[in-house]
């Protein structure tokens, strides 16, 4: 059972998190052509080895995270917030 180091909450059991999807996917603009949407939604690399993926700390701070994980060994190399400039956003809102 792996543990994920949440940037807000610290090291927590995997059972607190939910897997999202492959993190390398860049979703096209909402009005992009059908092919690029098709690629983003249906084509997966199915990486054997290291990949970036998104996880949500569902039973914690609810942050979405970018987790670099080895799909073979389940070893985790890095965890960071998916929202890169959340601090700026909070300032803008308040």
């Amino acid at each position: 059972m792996i543990q994920i180091e949440c940037p807000f909450c610290g090291k927590r059991d995997q059972s607190e998190f939910s897997y999202g999807r492959e993190g390398q996917i860049t979703f096209p603009a909402l009005n992009a052509d059908e092919n690029s949407w098709y690629d983003a939604v249906f084509l997966r690399k199915n990486t054997y080895g290291r990949q970036i993926e998104t996880w949500q700390h569902t039973h914690g701070c609810r942050s979405w995270l970018l987790v670099e994980r080895d799909t073979v060994t389940h070893k985790i190399f890095s965890v960071k917030l998916a929202h890169t400039d959340w601090q700026k956003q909070i300032k803008k809102t308040t």
Binding site: T54, T58, W64, L81, A82, T84, W86, Q89
Partner: peptide, 16 residues
């Protein structure tokens, strides 16, 4: 709820 959070945090971080 999880979907909206994903959209805001992962896909459209520019939205406040």
């Amino acid at each position: 709820m999880a979907r909206l959070e994903e959209l805001l945090q992962v896909r459209w971080p520019d939205l406040s």
